[in-house]
Design a protein around this nucleic acid. Structure first.
Lengths: 326, 326
DNA sequence: CTGAAAGCGCTAACAA
DNA sequence: TTGTTAGCGCTTTCAG
């Protein structure tokens, strides 16, 4: 691996000259410029980002730490963030932690230690708060989709309360009275907020609320249904934690011999691609996932001195997409 | 951000002492050890990985560069790789390029410039070969699932030819004669190999082969079907590029008023979670995706001096999972 | 067990 | 336009 010294030697100039010319070739004219450029090309020279970073610059990496990249929701968040990062000459790298809190902290730590300009983060549970706070003292941290209580970290998110309320309202309008909420893990603020929205609407309607704690996966939804679809009075509608959960519920309903939406309606969250392709297609609350990632990236980058973050929108709205399932 | 000098000052010792003690505390006893450890803790000192990397070490990051992280197949590959990397004290970071060749090269370059010990890579097209080769001179590159022609880069992959042949054979055994292959983009070696397997079996059976080039997405599958399900003699079975493509085909079939599998059978590839939850559930060729990632990581890490790679398996087998769709 | 000194590859004043 | 000199934060000989 050729270093700047090799290029300097080959071109017969000083290292600093090479650095300058390579850094901004247009600012030079003489034939030194040509010699340096040629030597660099010939030796296939690439400046070490490590050395650059050590000497003043920062890492070109913007980590996005998420609980589960196999949930396409996060893939879209990543996509949105990427677009913004690319414009600033930076690269999004996705770190998936599998919901393991230790792995989560380890990733955050590792990235912070690499002097990344900022970190985009969706916590899987509140328990990381203290550690994240300590990391945030060194590196700008922006949360996506889930806030961290006892913390003043900024968070770009969807108004989950409002969204869940709208979803619940939709189910009631369709005449449902026994509406159950299969929530995500209550350790996630997004799950708690959605439950709150659901509960408010049920209360206002004078209906009993029932919450089953599940998780954000297909298997979780299917498993939750085991408790739901067997009793004497199964619900006529379910507000699912997200689309993956909803897909699991769909399968469980079919296995239990229930027709969707006639016997039981299912309402998802996210609007993944798959939502319109399952059978029946999924009625869902669309989250503007790419924009979530984009706004978060803009905020974080602004903090790190890249661009302006004054017009970042912190709270986005979900949109009800009505299809067949509810 | 406290540096090693701060700690040294606080503990009243030399920087090198701090370095040594922090690097391997068990090897020391005296009360200097205590002072240093305490000072480090008190100052919340974290060694800069950048500086460590510059001074001999390598980056703790193992990039996994894939075309599309919203395809859960790659999420599973990542998961498999992660397990191996973690054991070596390294972190997998996922770089999703959206199939954009330029972004792909940019990512590879950026990671290589960061002195990562190795790179795990699934190329989206053959056109990157030359550039990848140049990067591979600096950083160990291991390909996953798709090889790069004109290149001696090692590749951990599934035997796509064999797998596609087995799938096609399954369809023929079920009595199908008009079997069409909706392939992935022919710029991907995996797609070409699957087509080859399909073609061989069709040829041997004396049946006409028909290949429609699609891509690896739901939308791609649906779009391909537009050409397929309208003509006078639609196929009675389709070998899909992958499960996402198959899901798109399922939707298209339903829209065209065709029943699956009675009017048209659909055979997928990958066995994503969603495969067993769509309706009808998907018959598919399961790829051992996590193991693909794991073996690739082992090979790459061995190259970089972490662990042993002598028993790495380069070619894995797919498994036919029969469900409802074919 | 500890200190001194050199060096990883690069950038950034400061002079010339 | 170019060279000189420091220095980023850490590890690692080599002495003591």
């Amino acid at each position: 691996m050729a270093t700047i010294a090799d290029v300097a030697r080959a071109a017969g100039v000083h290292r600093s000259t090479v650095s300058r010319i390579l850094r901004d070739p247009k600012a030079f004219r003489g034939e030194t410029r040509t010699r340096v450029l040629e030597a660099a090309a010939r030796l296939d020279y690439r400046p070490s980002r490590i050395a650059q970073a050590l000497s003043g610059g920062a890492s070109p990496l913007v980590p996005l730490v998420v609980p589960d990249i196999s949930n396409p929701f996060f893939a879209r968040v990543a996509r949105g963030a990427e677009e913004i990062a690319r414009a600033a000459g930076l690269h999004i790298v996705v770190c998936s932690t599998g919901g393991d809190v230790e792995a989560e902290v380890a990733y955050l730590q590792a990235m912070s230690d690499l002097d990344t300009p900022c970190i985009l983060f969706t916590p899987s549970a509140d328990t990381v708060a203290a550690q994240v706070l300590s990391i945030a003292r060194h590196t700008a941290v922006v949360l996506i989709d889930r806030s961290l209580p006892e913390t003043d970290l900024r968070c770009v998110r969807v108004d989950h309360v409002q969204a869940a309320a709208a979803g619940t309202q939709h189910l009631l309008t369709r005449g449902h009275r026994r509406v159950v909420c299969v929530s995500g893990p209550m350790s996630a603020s997004s799950a708690r907020e959605r439950v709150a929205g659901y509960q408010t609407v049920m209360d206002e309607a004078g209906l009993p609320a029932q919450v089953v704690e599940g998780d954000f996966t297909i298997a979780g939804g299917r498993h939750a249904a085991a408790q739901l679809f067997v009793g004497g009075e199964p619900p006529t509608a379910v507000l699912a934690a997200n689309d993956l959960c909803a897909v699991g519920l769909l399968t469980a309903a079919r296995e239990a011999g229930l027709r969707v939406p006639d016997d039981v309606a299912v309402l998802g969250f996210d609007d993944l691609d798959v939502a319109q392709h399952v059978n029946p297609s999924l009625t869902t609350l669309r989250q503007p996932s790419a924009e979530l990632g984009g706004q978060a990236a803009r905020l974080a980058l602004a903090d790190a001195g890249f661009g302006d973050g004054s017009d970042v929108v912190l709270t986005l709205q979900a949109e009800l997409i009505v299809r067949e399932s509810a």
